[in-house]
Structure formats: structure tokens, C-alpha cells
């Protein structure tokens, strides 16, 4: 067992915040291009997806390399994903819709990509709320089951990305392949475990 290094978690936290700081700085210095609000929405969307996938990488790494110490950082990564998702949603509600709730509701109903994005975000809310060690302890097996929602959320996030893409599907395809690999790692484990048990 590798001993916890005290400064790693805060350092990781700051590193994860770097994109947000850079975006805020870019916004302030007008360095986000001719349509800064679009840049903000798109970049935060991408970071949400990236952090969701990063969060999903932890368990396979632990299993493959017995890097138990990584477990400590999974919650942080998940919460960072939620944080970028919250900023992403806020930029949409504010700069796209200016809190016109009727229009937003219509958008959720009418536009498949918004429906998917919204579903992806809504699923993250209970996960963020039950992310504490305390909730994990109290909920036991139910916690595990509930937190499998992250798979569905990431999948909905990918759908969202595919459905909003006009023509160039290269980048969403790369994320989709990463997601598929991460899911495959889990399925393979389940089958090998059950094979070993029988």
C-alpha cells in the first residue's frame, strides 16, 4: 500500500480547476475569440465529458495495476466533472436563454441534444449530493447501485455531443471509443470474475 502524500489531493484539485481559471481569465481579457460565450459553453461542455471519463478510468486502473491509492481521487474527479457540468449548464441558461424558462422548457422538449444533455446533468445531481464518505457508509450497497448512474450520465453526455455535432464527428467518436473501452474493461471483469467463481 502506497502511503498517502498529503499535498497530492490539493495539487490535483488545483490542476483540475486550471481550465476553469483559464476560461475565466480569457473571458476577462477578451481572449476567447469573437464569440466568447460560445467558447465558454463549448469548452465547459468538453471538460465535463473529459472529467466524467477520467472518473470512470479510476476503477479499471485500480484493478489492472492494483493502484489502490487512486480510489482517494475518484470522488474529487467526479465532483470536478459536476462542477464543469454546472458551469456549462449555467452558461446555457444565462447566455443562451437569459433565463427564459418557457423557452428553456421548450428547448428541453424539442431539441434531442438538449434533452440528452439535461438528462446527463440531472443524473449527476444525486451522485454529487451523495458523494460524501458519510453517505457512502450509510447507504452501503445502495450507494454502489446509485453511483452506477454515472455510466448512464456519461452515455447521455455522449449522445448529447453526437446530436449537437453538425458534420465533424471525429472528436465525439474519440470520446465514444474511450467510453466504450472503459465500459468493456468493466464487463470483462464481471465475466472473468463470474467465470472464476464457477
Amino acid at each position: 500500500m502506497i502511503r498517502p502524500v498529503p499535498w497530492v489531493a490539493p495539487a490535483l484539485f488545483l490542476l483540475c480547476l486550471a481550465p476553469a481559471v483559464e476560461l475565466a481569465h480569457g473571458l476577462y481579457t477578451n481572449a476567447l475569440g469573437p464569440n466568447p460565450l460560445e467558447t465558454l459553453t463549448r469548452d465547459t461542455g468538453k471538460w465535463t465529458l473529459r472529467f466524467l471519463l477520467l472518473t470512470l478510468t479510476i476503477s479499471p486502473l485500480i484493478r489492472l495495476f492494483q493502484w489502490q491509492f487512486l480510489l482517494r481521487y475518484r470522488r474529487l474527479l467526479g465532483l470536478i466533472a459536476f462542477q464543469y457540468g454546472t458551469i456549462h449548464l449555467t452558461t446555457y441558461l444565462w447566455f443562451d436563454q437569459f433565463f427564459d424558462w418557457a423557452e428553456i422548457w421548450l428547448d428541453i422538449l424539442e431539441r434531442p441534444f438538449i434533452t440528452a444533455g439535461m438528462s446527463a446533468f440531472v443524473m449527476l445531481v444525486p451522485l454529487a449530493l451523495t458523494s460524501s464518505r458519510w453517505a457512502q457508509r450509510v447507504m452501503g450497497q445502495a450507494w454502489k447501485r446509485l453511483h452506477r448512474l454515472i455510466y448512464v450520465s456519461a452515455f447521455a453526455g455522449l449522445l448529447h455531443y453526437f446530436w449537437l455535432t453538425r458534420a465533424d464527428f471525429l472528436e465525439p467518436a474519440i470520446y465514444a471509443i474511450l467510453f466504450a473501452l472503459l465500459m468493456l474493461a468493466r464487463i470483462r471483469r464481471t465475466t472473468t470474475v463470474s467465470a472464476g467463481e464457477s
Binding site: L37, P112, L164
Partner: peptide, 10 residues
């Protein structure tokens, strides 16, 4: 439009 609301523009 299935992708963007065309009611407003920036």
C-alpha cells in the same frame, strides 16, 4: 430547427 432555436440571434 432541430438544433438551434431560430427565434433569436447573437
Amino acid at each position: 430547427h432541430p438544433r438551434w432555436s431560430q427565434r433569436r440571434e447573437r
